[in-house]
Design a protein around this nucleic acid. Structure first.
Length: 317
DNA sequence: TCTGGGGTCCTAGGACCC
DNA sequence: TCTGGGGTCCTAGGACCC
């Protein structure tokens, strides 16, 4: 597959509903990228090789990569499948960065980029300056020079919506965000998010990295149907099935809250959730809770997607 | 042109209590 | 008869990320 346009997404069938998870650089040259509908991708790049998403395989490889990182002396905190923060106290981080790249390559055959920064935000953005297999570095000293003229959306945590709202306040660049008025942003984004945005624009952020295992808050399961569901009896049967699956994958943790999600054919999504009378491990109780929530949906338009989310009680209270 | 699936965290508004 | 202020909990939706 090396050198070919390769597109990964859905079950590998580009005639079905689904989007691109990732694409090789050769495929990207045709305008195919993460989030592109598979059907669109097939039109833009008919000769591409389409592959299914293989979660279990990625999880295995991810474990190998994380194990390689944990061979270092640094504190390792995974962030998804293909990223991790490493905390180390050193005057010269370059040798560690090189060691990381080489160790991951030796153990897995995979190249990685390494970003060096004084906090998570700087390190995260620095990886972008290192791609595809290099080492990037950002410091508080060169933050303004490197990022000041960039649009605010270049920042980790600032997406299209927030960038648009900032633009309406006359804030276009990272530098302008860094110098923005605290009260103005607090009024627009709330007392937590407003000040956080300004600090983010200045390259200020948490440097905390923990090796504590991540405890998932919940588990959700959702399905987009190849043909819209038009019979409400089918909708009920599916919600019951999905609810049991979501609860089952909680590794026997008690469920305290259940949420049902319905996306109608016009791509309009509504959710209804409910705190249970008491936390439960009983799949029947979760299923009944989901079905009770489904009764709150009165719209009978064709259904495109159904989802159920279960939230777990914290392990120690 | 048609728009996945799995997550987390924040905000706003209503209910309710003192 | 009209009606303050503070606090917490709950739910729906928004935004963002991988």
């Amino acid at each position: 597959l090396r050198g070919l346009p390769v597109v990964v997404g859905g079950d590998g069938d580009p005639t079905k509903r689904g989007v691109v998870s990732t694409a090789s650089y050769e495929a990207r040259a045709f305008g195919v990228q993460s989030g592109t509908p598979l059907r669109t991708a097939a039109r833009r790049c008919p000769d591409a090789v389409f592959l299914p998403v293989d979660r279990a395989y990625y999880e295995d490889i991810s474990e190998e990569v994380m194990a390689a990182l944990r061979e270092s002396d640094a504190v390792v905190e995974p962030l998804g499948w293909d990223e991790a923060f490493l905390a180390a106290e050193t005057d010269d981080p370059q040798p560690l960065a090189e060691w990381i790249h080489d160790r991951v390559l030796a153990r897995t055959g995979l190249h990685c980029s390494v970003g060096i920064g004084e906090n998570r935000l700087q390190a995260k953005l620095a990886t972008g300056f290192g791609k595809p297999a290099g080492i990037g570095r950002l410091t508080s000293q060169d933050w303004d020079e490197r990022l000041g003229d960039e649009p605010t959306q270049a920042l980790w945590g600032v997406g299209a919506r927030t960038a648009a709202r900032l633009r309406s306040l006359g804030i276009e660049t990272v530098r302008q965000l860094a110098a923005a008025d605290r009260n103005t942003l607090s009024r627009e984004f709330g007392p937590t998010t407003g000040p956080w945005l300004i600090l983010t624009g200045r390259g200020v952020g948490s440097a905390e990295v923990t090796a504590e295992p991540w405890i998932p808050r919940g588990r959700s399961k959702e399905v987009t149907y190849q043909q819209n569901l038009t019979d409400w009896a089918d909708v009920e049967r599916e919600v019951a099935r999905i609810a049991r699956e979501a609860a089952q994958e909680g590794d026997d943790r008690a469920v305290w809250r259940v949420t049902v999600k319905v996306r109608y054919a016009p791509f309009f999504t509504t959710t209804h959730g409910h705190k249970l009378a008491a936390p439960t491990r009983d799949l029947d109780v979760v299923e009944q809770a989901a079905l009770a929530l489904l009764r709150l949906f009165e719209d009978r338009r064709p259904v495109r997607l159904l989802g159920v989310r279960t939230e777990f009680v914290k392990p120690d209270g």
